[in-house]
Design a protein around this nucleic acid. Structure first.
Lengths: 352, 352
DNA sequence: TTGTAAGCGTTATCAC
DNA sequence: GTGATAACGCTTACAA
């Protein structure tokens, strides 16, 4: 690999001039610039990105920092978002650095390393916990970041984030099945260690009280992590006396809903929106949701939109746009400066 | 961000000692090391990855370098593979850098930049073309890489790759529908600018000749890029005189098959394995394949396996393992040193 | 066992 | 317009 000296020697100038020519400075003779450019081309010289960032220059790279858990729900969502994010980065001429840790204790450490490494200009923090030390960490370090999700205390901390309104989404689902005349509404969720799980569950509780339905603890099962647990939970729901069995199952995400549907089908129960059938709803509208049978009725938080908003906001933050960074998503509610809540949309299909 | 000087000052030693202590060198007093480690911890000091790589040290990062096209088939596959790769990297304590270019002319340039940037230790090159200048490019630069897919001249070039045996996969599908008694077999494909499309198509032609079926050019449609084109193609197939219409449609990938099924269904035609129904087969077994209706019969090239093999091989190459890098996949056929062909597996579901 | 000093490949600050 | 030269933060001979 040729370096700046090689080019300088070829061109018979100093490295300073080469640097200036290549970086489009104005104070360099047009002729010299042309010559240097040509030589750089010939030598197929590319400035070392690493040396550049050592000077504090932009890296044109952002990091995606998820908190990887081992849930059934976590994996499929992760894959989807990484892919979409990577694709979205192209538009901004950014590269995406994905680095996570195997164990959850290490995530903070890994994050600190990435943030302090000088390898990225900004970070997309994902899978926020209600109390998430990573927000303070990044704020301390002073690196631009945008969170996907929010902590409980987002108002005091006032860091930039994009979140999907989980409570609203679940409310919509509850309202929808309520209007079908269903009253015994079960709620299945993964662990509550992540913010969105909590918000979504709150949505369930809020809407129950809104409709004057008493909460039945037997209809709420949380901390579901793998297939078997879900199957067992569904089984248990339908071991209740018949008039206490749920008429609808609100699942906190699509992956859960998928498993619920499968369990129900295995048990010989019909899933759907008709009376007598069990209604099942999901959340996220992952690509497979439309293909399930019955096709999943769910709350869509278009991942494309969400990722688009995340990138838009992060890019604005990185530019130090003192101006309120506006994002172009139309369904966004502004909670604070650079804090947006995206409103999910009810997608009615067959499962409810 | 504290740097190595801060730690050195705190500890009352030179930066050399700090460096050595942190990198686990043996020639440093245990006491001093302890002290330095403690101080580094307190200061939450992390060595700058950038400065480190400037010294030619490992970055523990690999790049994924796809060739992004604008097909309907390209996008979903890309998302899947990036996600799985990112997850797979965790096992090896690697970060994944995804950087592509918007336009296809730029891919080589972008690649050169990444490869020469010093930011990554190795590269996974994807979406190979039958003649792909990127192989020579990376070989020239001398950076470790593994290709996902292969060029036509892989034997001369002898670079490491993992490929899925596209011909074999399609042969399996053809044989399967042939055994159902079907003889008029259409083949739908995306553009032939990518190796796997060519190999898969070859598989189609080989198996036709193997079964003594004459090729009917009207049953082969290539260069399909978007929904509408696929719909039109299917329409045209069934505008043929009835006894010339296809009894099976072999699609070169799942995304294509999905659209074929939808088109067929819209036209009121039944898809399935029974006589009278049109059989449709896919290739890849993307996550949605199992959920389609009818569920897609396809050739599975488990992306997990493929990515696993890619990473395994790349890590071996990066370690300079002169020894033949063995991969642990059991269905792998060795074409040459560090060149493996993965044999896809027939997944029989409902669509054929 | 520890320290000094020379890189690594850029960009930025001064002079000229 | 152009060129020395000093950073940037680290690793690694080479000394001590």
């Amino acid at each position: 690999m040729p370096n700046i000296f090689d080019v300088a020697k070829q061109a018979g100038v100093s490295i300073t001039t080469v640097s200036r020519a290549l970086n489009g400075y104005s104070d360099v003779n047009e002729k010299t610039r042309k010559r240097i450019l040509k030589i750089a081309e010939e030598l197929s010289y590319y400035p070392s990105a690493v040396a550049r960032s050592l000077q504090g220059k932009k890296t044109n790279t952002i990091a995606f920092a998820p908190w990887l858990r081992d849930h059934i729900e976590s994996r499929s969502f992760f894959k989807e978002i990484v892919g979409v994010l990577a694709l979205g980065c192209l538009k901004y001429d950014l590269s995406l650095l994905v680095s996570g840790a195997d164990s959850s204790q290490e995530t903070s450490e890994t994050l600190r390393e990435v943030a302090g490494s000088g390898r990225v200009d900004g970070i997309i923090l994902s899978d926020l916990k209600p109390e998430d030390e990573r927000v303070a960490l990044l704020t301390d370090i002073g690196i631009p970041f945008v969170a996907f999700g929010r902590t409980a205390n987002y108002q005091e901390l006032s860091y930039p984030f994009i979140d999907v309104d989980g409570a609203a989404g679940i409310c919509t689902m509850v309202e929808y099945v309520y209007n079908q005349g269903r009253r015994r509404l079960a709620y299945l969720s993964g662990p509550f260690n992540t913010s969105y799980s909590v918000y979504r569950f709150n949505g369930y509780r809020e809407s129950l009280s809104k409709f004057g339905i008493a909460e039945d603890p037997r209809l709420v099962v949380a901390d579901l992590q793998e297939q078997n647990q879900i199957k067992q939970a569904v089984n248990r729901l339908f071991s209740l006396p018949e008039h206490q069995q749920p008429e609808a199952i609100i699942a906190s995400n699509d992956m859960l809903a998928l498993n619920v549907i499968n369990s129900l089908t295995e048990m010989g129960r019909e899933v759907g929106s008709k009376p007598g059938q069990t209604a099942v709803t999901g959340f996220d509208d992952l690509p497979f949701a439309a293909f399930l049978r019955p096709a999943l009725t769910t709350a869509r938080q278009s991942i494309e939109d969400t990722c688009g908003a995340l990138l838009e906001l992060l890019v604005a933050v990185m530019r130090q746009d003192g101006a309120e960074a506006k994002i172009s998503q139309t369904n966004a509610l502004m909670l604070g400066p650079k804090q947006y809540l995206l409103r999910p949309e009810l997608v009615i299909r067959e499962s409810a």
